[in-house]
Design a protein around this nucleic acid. Structure first.
Length: 440
RNA sequence: GGAGAGGUGGCAGAGUGGUCGAAUGCGGCGGUCUUGAAAACCGUUGACUUGCAAAGGUCCGGGGGUUCGAAUCCCUCCCUCUCCGCCA
């Protein structure tokens, strides 16, 4: 959520930022609503003041034993005027809040302007792409016996996979290694977190209300009726976590940190669930784009003046994993048209996939500045003397997507006879009898 | 799933219809004392929000209701704790 003062006093800034993203913000309509809000709010607050004063007076009269009837009637009239005005105000405030919740974050000044992924700008390239004397295979062509897609089809549906034996172990080893690097080398605390989340949590991090169609919406077994998420009578809506970013960021919701508690640095290996609506026909083969995948996530909650350096740090930490695995990659800055809703600035790490002859995203590291913090009321005390508070800044980054990293390991280390050389960095995480060459 | 008890400021914990935004303690901040620190003592200290300001409004788990007036009464949902059952 944006600072409402910016929206009110500097609407062209919002309009511009939205335009860069390919979204629209109608400053005039907004100004009209704001004008109405001011008038109404003034009226309501006035009446509320009258109500309080009148009630106090009646209180005194009761104590003195005076006649209440006349005052009571007056107060009833105030109430009659107040009720509809309050209702009107509440509706208006909700309308405004909806607008606020659907406005994307303001972009950092150095975010390149562009339409889509083609306009992302290159930051750096690392590693040498492997030279194959043969046509490299795609990951799902390499070991069909260890990576199955038909069995999941019958128990779950499309976009699910089944990994077997050494493939499953390799996948697990990757996650383990990432977690160890981030906890031991990079100073993150390992967290294990709920994967079923309520609307509030997802609203705080920015997935809701705008991107409901990307989520799996679930309900308890005994909820027969509709759940509207309106907290009226019928329980609470639940969603499967699309990324542990949501849970990790929400650790800070409704929290006032003291300065020495920051930065909070947390990491989590978790399963992620995404509906992948609107990606029909896209990356249908293999494990690249699944409804269910695993990811090691990094989240930092930092003082408001520290988020820029924290972003750089985080990108470095994600890169460390690729370097340890000796996988060629590049780092790009996402352009205005490609960047996510909550982010002010985002770097993507794209790993080289020789089978596809393309770089593909394995990590996305974003500085959300105070966007999520405002939604979830996460602040820190800047000065204990005056007790002054400021919103914290939040950052998230994948470190890394486990399945996609597995793809990269398989494709980059394949041999002419269809086997895969295991990277040194993974060996401590594999069983002793794990073959030097997968496929042997 | 059954039975019970609760949800109040950074924390602990009073408050059961009328100056209660809320006692008290701890913690925080400032000060006195001290070579310095601790202790003691004094003062101060909730959040959000409208407004240029003056001055207001909202908030006692969420939502709704009763009332002139609700932290306090009613309805409903959520959460926590204890006991029993079940279960990884």
């Amino acid at each position: 959520m944006l600072d409402t003062h910016i929206i009110r006093n500097n609407p062209q800034k919002v309009t511009e930022s939205c335009a860069k993203r390919g979204a629209t913000f109608d400053a005039e309509v907004y100004a009209g609503l704001e004008q109405k809000r001011k008038t109404l709010q003034e009226k309501v607050q006035n009446l509320q003041e009258q109500r309080t004063k009148g009630a106090d007076e009646i209180g005194k009269l009761v104590a003195q034993g005076g006649d209440l009837n006349q005052l009571k009637q007056q107060m009833q009239q105030v109430q009659q005027e107040l009720k509809p005005a309050k209702k009107e105000l509440d509706d208006l405030l909700e309308e405004l809040r909806n607008i606020h919740l659907n406005l994307p974050n303001i972009l950092d000044a150095d975010v390149p302007v562009g339409k889509d992924a083609n306009d992302n700008t290159l930051v750096l390239e690392w590693g040498d792409k492997p030279n194959f004397s043969f046509k490299p295979k795609e990951h799902y062509e390499l070991f069909p016996q260890l990576m199955d897609f038909t069995i999941p089809g019958k128990m779950a549906g499309s976009r699910f996979s089944l990994l077997r034996g050494p493939m499953a172990q390799l996948h697990r080893a990757l996650a383990q290694m990432m977690l160890d690097v981030h906890t031991r080398l990079h100073g993150y605390e390992e967290i294990n977190i709920p994967l079923i989340l309520n609307r509030d949590a997802l609203t705080n991090s920015g997935q809701l209300p705008k991107f409901e169609e990307d989520l799996f919406h679930i309900k308890k077994g005994d909820d027969k009726d509709d759940n509207k998420g309106d907290d009226k009578g019928d329980g609470v809506d639940f969603y499967l976590s699309p990324t542990s970013e949501v849970g990790l960021v929400n650790i800070g919701s409704d929290t006032i940190y003291s300065g020495d508690e920051l930065p909070v640095k947390v990491t989590c290996h978790s399963t992620c669930f995404r509906a992948e609506a609107g990606s029909y026909g896209k990356d249908v083969k293999g494990i690249l784009r699944q409804h269910q995948f695993e990811k090691v996530e990094l989240v930092q909650i930092v003082k408001s003046d520290k988020s820029e350096e924290a972003l750089e740090e985080m990108v470095g930490q994600a890169q460390k994993i690729l370097q340890m695995l000796e996988l060629p990659y590049k780092v790009v800055t996402l352009c205005s048209g490609d960047i996510g809703f909550s982010a002010a600035k985002t770097y993507d790490l794209e790993v080289w996939l020789p089978g596809q002859d393309k770089y593909r995203e394995v990590s996305s590291c974003s500085n959300c500045r105070d966007f999520q913090a405002r939604r979830m009321q996460a602040r820190w005390v800047t000065d204990p003397g005056t007790n002054k508070k400021e919103l914290v800044h939040t950052l998230n980054g994948s470190g890394l997507a486990v399945g996609r990293t597995l793809i990269a390991v398989l494709e980059n280390n394949q041999t002419a006879d269809g086997k895969v050389k295991i990277p040194e960095a993974l060996k401590p995480y594999l069983s002793e009898d794990f073959p030097e060459l997968l496929g042997d």
